[in-house]
């Protein structure tokens, strides 16, 4: 067998939850360590192997000037670059700043704003460097992460669906919360992958996996609006962890404008 692929795990602005998913894959963690060389993964190991790496997993969004430079270095070090999670893929919850004045944020939270070195925006990795593959989710699904690793090891495309949460929801036999309970749910426009958890707990999907392919959040938003949902509720729903993703952003901006 050829040498084990070298894996690096990087962190930018994030909560650590996505890289934790690797440690949370309890059944597979040691098997993963058998098939890939975990060469750089600060959260899990002190030893660091020098790059370049075959695969880089990047968690977190780009929020500082330093990180703008660092991600370019990361890209140079990694043959195959994968973003893991909503922060790295869509800017994450930090991207809520993109609709507001970040100086306002700083002065609100920090007593000494002069110490804060941050950008006005939180942006996905793909806005800075080329990304080979994006794994969605807030957090990512550990099964999808293991599938990603398996796919990379065996040289195939990761099997990660791009269809809606509704497909998963119906497969698992959950009664639609939007239709049967009148809850404003983002499932029809959100990419599957989580296993359609929220509706099975009688609550709305709030878009952890970001817009599905061919998403039409505008139509869904208009429908909920017509059903009497307050527009700002819908704006907030679209602006959670993937608010900066194009389809959600367009729809939330339109709904916000309509509200004014």
């Amino acid at each position: 067998m050829a040498a084990k692929p070298k894996l690096a795990v990087y962190k930018f602005a994030s909560c650590d939850g996505c890289q934790l998913s690797l440690l949370d894959a309890e059944d597979e963690l040691l098997a993963v360590a058998d098939v890939v060389e975990i060469a750089y993964f600060l959260e899990a190991r002190t030893a660091v192997q020098e790059g370049p790496y075959d695969v880089g997993l990047v968690e977190g969004s780009i929020t500082t000037k330093h990180d703008v430079e660092r991600i370019k270095e990361v890209r140079k070090q990694c043959r195959f670059l994968v973003t893991i999670g909503a922060c790295a893929t869509a800017g994450g919850i930090q991207a809520l700043r993109n609709w507001r004045d970040v100086n306002d944020f700083i002065s609100h939270v920090y007593a000494h704003p002069e110490y804060i070195n941050t950008l006005k925006t939180s942006t996905p990795v793909a806005e800075h460097v080329f990304v080979d593959f994006e794994l969605r989710g807030c957090p990512i699904n550990k099964k999808q992460l293991v599938e990603l690793v398996a796919a990379l090891v065996h040289g195939r495309k990761p099997r990660v669906p791009t269809y809606s949460v509704c497909v998963e929801c119906k497969r698992r036999d959950t009664v639609c919360v939007a239709v049967a309970r009148g809850i404003a749910c983002l499932g029809p426009v959100t990419q599957a992958g989580c296993g359609a958890i929220c509706p099975s707990y009688y609550r709305e999907c709030f878009g952890c996996y970001g817009p599905k392919e061919n998403a039409n959040s505008m139509s869904l938003g208009q429908h909920y609006l017509a059903a009497g949902k307050p527009s700002m509720q819908l704006v907030r729903l679209l602006r959670n962890f993937n608010g900066h993703a194009a389809d959600f952003a367009t729809a939330s901006t339109a709904l916000e404008t309509a509200n004014k």
């Binding site: 930018f12 602005a13 929020t63 500082t64 990180d67 919850i93 930090q94 809520l96 700043r97 507001r100 970040v102 306002d104 944020f105 700083i106 609100h108 939270v109 920090y110 804060i116 941050t118």
Partner: peptide, 9 residues
Amino acid sequence: EPPRFFESF
């Protein structure tokens, strides 16, 4: 670790 402004948003 860069600031994430939770209390603000």
